[in-house]
């Protein structure tokens, strides 16, 4: 009786944890959307003030431009921080990545958070337009590193999702292998030979998927371009490769379907 009570309590706690995990990702996404909207509004105000300052060069317009640029830079740092928090939550929720992989991605994201914290503090302590330009220049210089971190994490998340699919297929393949071992003698020998040929194809297809997955992971880890355009090209190429890897999984699925049919119509 006591054990049963404990079992229900543990189940309840487990459910609460699962809900918290989903809620934290959703919450992070909602925060990100809110901060993005705020940034857009503040940036529009800053552009108006900057244009006025550029046109009139008056003291009041300079004060307004300085005030809005500080607010905009602060909000920009907040927006990027919120986005990094969202990526971190997505990493924690990803079922296809190992703990080590998650730790590695989180470590690089944390270093970006530190940079953004300093950027935020510096933006608030700026007291001239030139000072604002200097602080913003630091972000511009750091931008390539920042974009690499973001792209690596995004590709990592996609690889994690691919790994989840691969695991689902692995379960089906294992089930098929166990079924064939357990019920080998339920089928005539001729049919069983035909079935075995499909099994070989499935194994080969799985091996080629694992190879391409490893190559993708290595490419993502060694992602280190020097400019944004190259980074964008590499990112798109990796996305294409991920889709190709998925097509290998689809091919393997079709072999499994063939195996299923061979078993179904074996006589």
């Amino acid at each position: 009786m006591r054990g049963l009570f404990l079992f229900f309590i543990l189940n309840f706690v487990n459910l609460l944890i699962v809900q918290t995990i989903n809620a934290s990702s959703n919450q992070a996404y909602q925060d990100y959307l809110f901060q993005y909207d705020t940034y857009r509004t503040i940036n529009a105000e800053f552009q108006t003030a900057r244009n006025e300052y550029e046109t009139f060069q008056s003291l009041s317009s300079e004060t307004a431009a300085l005030h809005t640029v500080k607010t905009m830079m602060n909000q920009r740092a907040i927006l990027l921080r919120t986005y990094i928090f969202l990526l971190k939550e997505k990493l924690y929720e990803n079922q296809g990545l190992s703990k080590n992989e998650i730790s590695s991605y989180v470590a690089t994201l944390d270093s970006e958070l530190n940079f953004l914290d300093s950027q935020k503090n510096e933006a608030l302590s700026v007291n001239s337009i030139q000072g604002a330009i200097d602080v913003s220049k630091k972000l511009e210089n750091h931008n390539i590193q920042f974009q690499i971190t973001i792209d690596r994490t995004r590709i990592g998340l996609a690889l994690g999702n691919l790994s989840v699919l691969s695991r689902t297929q692995d379960n089906a393949v294992s089930y098929a292998q166990k079924f064939l071992t357990d019920h080998k003698y339920a089928y005539p020998k001729e049919s069983y030979d035909k079935i075995s040929r499909w099994t070989e194809k499935i194994v080969q297809s799985r091996e080629s998927f694992i190879q391409s997955y490893d190559v993708l992971r290595q490419k993502n880890n060694s992602l280190n371009p020097t400019d944004i355009q190259t980074l964008t090209d590499l990112h798109n190429s990796l996305l294409k490769d991920i889709e190709s890897a998925r097509s290998l999984l689809i091919q393997c699925s079709s072999y499994l379907v063939e195996l299923k049919n061979a078993l179904k119509y074996a006589d």
């Binding site: 996404y29 990100y32 993005y36 940034y39 940036n43 920009r76 927006l79 990027l80 986005y83 969202l86 990526l87 997505k90 913003s136 972000l139 511009e140 931008n143 974009q147 973001i150 995004r154 998340l157 996609a158 999702n161 691919l162 699919l165 689902t168 297929q169 379960n171 089906a172 996305l239 991920i242 889709e243 998925r246 999984l249 689809i250 699925s253 079709s254 499994l256 379907v257």
Partner: peptide, 23 residues
């Protein structure tokens, strides 16, 4: 398994990065 592999999204649209002005 076939349905999951064919229909699931590998790239999460919610993690699209924000577009912001550097300069």
């Amino acid at each position: 398994m076939k349905e999951i592999i064919q229909n699931s999204n590998l790239i999460d649209p919610s993690v699209s990065p924000p577009i912001f002005e550097l300069s």
